[in-house]
Amino acid sequence: MAHHQDLPPVQGYDKIQWKRNIPSRGFRPTIWLGMLITMSSYGFYKIIQGNREQQEISREKLQARINLLPLLQAEQDRDILRRSLAYYNREAEIMKDVPWWEVKHTYSDKNEFHPPNTVLVGKQVDKDGLFWNANSKDRYN
């Protein structure tokens, strides 16, 4: 007796539908990638432009200060010289009775200008103030 094996149909099975039957949305992946690259290139371009402008702004500020530097230093030099001379004159006046005293800066030689490191500071008080202004009338006598 012939043995019959169970076999597939001669024309084959139907295709299995493994994919949903809906249209694919959006662009192709290459187009998405292209858009990504374009947009980020534009963004980086703008960032670089902005950074360069920022650098120019800093340079402008620096240059403005450089332009003022000689002016400010000239003024400061005059002020320092004025105060130093006044300081040494005061010192000479105070020490005039000491014959060996030499008016010069402690850590400097005669050939180099060195403003005194000490500053004599007074307290600004109102002569006509009362005692709660930390004043004493005797101080001015």
């Binding site: 010289l81 001379l85 500071v121 007074g122 307290k123 600004q124 202004n133 930390a134």
Partner: peptide, 17 residues
């Protein structure tokens, strides 16, 4: 500002020679 305490100033305030 006169009456403010601890308002200090520098003694050396002469003019330049």
């Amino acid at each position: 500002t006169d009456k403010k305490r601890d308002t200090q100033y520098v003694f050396e305030n002469d003019k330049l020679p």
